[in-house]
Design a protein around this nucleic acid. Structure first.
Lengths: 102, 102
DNA sequence: TTGGAATATCGAGATATTTCGATTTATGGA
DNA sequence: TCCATAAATCGAAATATCTCGATATTCCAA
C-alpha cells in the first residue's frame, strides 16, 4: 500500500473518472465475442470513452495498476482492466488512518 | 468540498506530514507568551520542523487552507494554523463516495 | 514614527506531469 | 509465413509543481 503512488494516481480527473466508469461494466460497449465472462474492459473501450490518445490511456491504466486500484488480465491481444475493490478499500482505510486524529 | 484541490494538496509528503504534526500541539514548541489559549501553530514553528524555506511553508499552508484542511487565525504578526477536523472528515467521506462502489 | 519581526507574495530555475504521435511488441487469423 | 490489430513503450513539447531567495505587507513596540 504505497499511499504516495496511490494519491498521485488519483491526482487527475480523468483517471478518477475511469475508476468510476469501471464500477459498472455497462458504462462500456458489450463484451467482445468470446469474452462475455470477463468483468474487465479493454483499453480501446476506455480510450474511446475518455477521448484521449491510446498511449495516454495505456499510460493511465499503468499508473492506476501500479497504485493497486486496478488489475489487468491479458487475453490474446487484449488487456482487460477491472477495479480491485479490496485494494481500493485498503487505500481508503490507509488514508483515513493517516488523516484522522487517533 | 473541492475534491480536486484537496487531492492536490495531499499530493505532497511534506504537506501530509504537516497535517499529521498538527494533530498534536505538543509536536511543536510551547505556545508564545500570551497565546497559550490558542490551539494553532505559527508558521515559523512549522517551518523549523519541516526544514524548508519560510516562503515554501507559507505557500504550503495556503494550499492546505484552500483545500479546507486547516483554518488560520491571525493574531498580531502571527498566523496560527490548526486542522479543521470537520472538513477533513468531509473530504474523507467525499473520497469514499467517489471511490467506493455503491 | 521608525525599526524589526512574522508572514505573504513575487519571479525564476529545476523538476515532474500531461499528452501526443511514432514505434515496438505481442498475438491471432488468412 | 505475413498481415492486421491491440497494447505498451519511447521521445518530445507544453504545462504544472516545487522550492528558493528577494521583496512587500502587516503589525507591534520603543
Amino acid at each position: 500500500m504505497d499511499i504516495e503512488r496511490s494519491i498521485s494516481a488519483l491526482n487527475n480527473p480523468v483517471r478518477r473518472q475511469i475508476l468510476e466508469w469501471l464500477k459498472d461494466r455497462s458504462n462500456f460497449p458489450p463484451a467482445l465475442p468470446g469474452h462475455e465472462d470477463l468483468e474487465g474492459v479493454c483499453v480501446a473501450y476506455i480510450q474511446e470513452k475518455a477521448n484521449l490518445s491510446q498511449s495516454t490511456i495505456s499510460n493511465y491504466m499503468g499508473l492506476l495498476k501500479q497504485a493497486g486500484f486496478v488489475n489487468s488480465e491479458r487475453h490474446g491481444q487484449w488487456t482487460f482492466y477491472r477495479r480491485d475493490e479490496e485494494k481500493i478499500q485498503a487505500f481508503l482505510t490507509a488514508v483515513q488512518g493517516e488523516l484522522l486524529k487517533p
